[in-house]
Amino acid sequence: MIEVNWSRTDLIDESAEVVEHQTKQQKNRLDQTSGVNIDEFSEGRVKVTKVVVDEHGQEQIGKKEGTYITLSVPTLTIDDTNGFEQLEKSFTKYLDDIHQDIEITKDSKVLVIGLGNKTITPDAIGPFAIDSMQNEQSENPSDHFIMYAPGVTGQTGFETSDFIRALTERIKPSLVLVIDALATRGSSRLCKTIQITNTGIHPGSGVGNQRTEVSKEVMGVPVTAIGVPTVVDATVIIADAIDNVFRSIAARIEEKGKPSGKLSVSSWTPDSNQRVDLNLIKPIFGEWSTWSNEDRLQLFEEAFASHPERLIVTPKEVDVWITKYSILISKCLFNWMEHKVK
């Protein structure tokens, strides 16, 4: 097959380079000589993935040197109070972890930038987070945060990075925090994940709109990016749906005749984590039914490569998700700052 770049994602643990290296190392921590260390563990319901890339690793996988922390609650739902509480606790903890080498005093200023287009809901988490922080500021005044939502280049005609650099030069903050919506290549990650990284951010890169980066190298001060994946490529949805159908049919065939299948009093649904033998459905659907999800995704990317429209998908309740994450991020930033300057 012709190689097509299907990994449209802002999450480092989903990037083709890291996934490839994880597979080679059987998804354990990468060998020290590779320059990339991956540590995966759980804290309650929160799955934590910490990726540290050094100078050598940057050359190996093409990702900037620094630390990337991904927090995910796979079973999170809009009304899941417990899930959001656990995610909030972990987010505050790793905000502190990633900034442990940055000195924040009672006189320090932190510039908070909300990237995105407020008129497009899936892209509005940055501006909404700024609104939430301003509301929090009115109730619990803090002299540390300076907040700004610059809009997007398509609205202003001016490079967003230049806006931020001008503010940085004028304010001279100890830290720049950038909040933005991200793209994912896994539909199960939509609105269930937060990524924190001290490498900065390329606005719009996840959906192919590459802009000038917002980073320490450009701004002259440390930059931390906070992102929530709110969109996914339509081809990913297709590949995930077909994978679920194939796995479900194979699991049902495998279960047929077993006592557990006969005792079921309702429609039986296989566990999503259950290993199934896809060779069972090969006589029905042919060779491609046994392909990996990535290979099918590659096939769909090739099939739709010449299509004039590339569809980006977001959950129908995205407005509620955006509101909840805006409040969560705002609350955690104020809690973190209060703890940091004590």
Rank of each mutant, 00 (worst) to 15 (best):
124 A>M: 03
228 V>E: 01
268 W>V: 13
31 D>W: 14
191 C>E: 01
13 D>A: 09
83 G>Q: 07
6 W>M: 08
14 E>P: 05
53 V>T: 08
171 I>N: 01
64 K>R: 14
266 S>Y: 05
178 V>Q: 02
224 T>S: 15
216 K>W: 03
123 D>K: 03
276 V>K: 05
54 D>V: 02
294 E>T: 11
337 M>Y: 10
211 R>V: 07
95 L>I: 11
163 F>N: 05
212 T>D: 12
183 A>F: 00
104 I>R: 12
13 D>C: 11
291 W>G: 01
328 L>R: 06
327 I>H: 12
5 N>Y: 04
81 T>L: 12
246 F>D: 14
59 E>H: 13
111 L>N: 09
77 T>N: 12
138 S>I: 08
104 I>S: 06
195 Q>G: 04
147 M>E: 05
131 D>L: 02
301 E>V: 00
32 Q>V: 14
126 G>H: 00
208 G>L: 03
98 I>N: 06
32 Q>E: 15
65 E>R: 15
106 K>F: 03
132 S>T: 09
318 V>L: 06
73 V>T: 09
303 A>M: 14
141 P>H: 11
93 K>N: 11
250 A>V: 00
12 I>P: 02
60 Q>R: 15
278 L>N: 05
95 L>T: 04
50 K>D: 10
263 L>K: 15
160 T>K: 07
252 R>C: 02
314 T>M: 06
293 N>L: 14
335 N>K: 15
253 I>E: 04
12 I>E: 04
90 S>L: 07
141 P>I: 09
59 E>G: 13
86 Q>D: 12
36 V>P: 00
185 R>D: 00
321 W>Y: 13
4 V>A: 04
147 M>N: 05
87 L>H: 07
85 E>R: 14
287 E>M: 08
331 K>L: 08
11 L>M: 14
230 T>D: 00
118 K>A: 14
130 I>P: 00
62 G>I: 10
9 T>C: 07
279 N>H: 13
264 S>C: 10
267 S>R: 07
236 V>C: 07
291 W>H: 11
72 S>L: 06
333 L>C: 12
136 E>V: 01
324 K>P: 00
262 K>M: 13
67 T>V: 14
135 N>H: 12
241 A>I: 05
204 G>L: 03
208 G>V: 04
93 K>S: 09
331 K>V: 05
61 I>A: 06
90 S>P: 01
229 P>R: 08
204 G>E: 07
51 V>F: 13
238 I>C: 02
160 T>A: 15
242 I>S: 01
38 I>Q: 08
290 T>K: 04
341 V>W: 11
319 D>Q: 12
261 G>T: 06
98 I>P: 03
178 V>A: 14
63 K>N: 10
31 D>I: 14
316 K>S: 15
201 I>F: 08
300 F>L: 11
116 G>E: 04
94 Y>T: 03
262 K>R: 12
340 K>E: 14
177 L>G: 02
175 L>H: 07
99 H>N: 15
103 E>M: 13
236 V>L: 02
198 N>V: 04
99 H>I: 03
45 R>F: 05
191 C>F: 01
305 A>G: 00
132 S>I: 01
235 T>S: 01
139 E>N: 12
297 L>A: 04
198 N>A: 08
182 L>I: 06
185 R>I: 05
272 S>F: 04
106 K>D: 12
54 D>S: 06
101 D>F: 00
251 A>P: 15
174 S>H: 09
307 H>C: 10
16 A>S: 09
293 N>P: 00
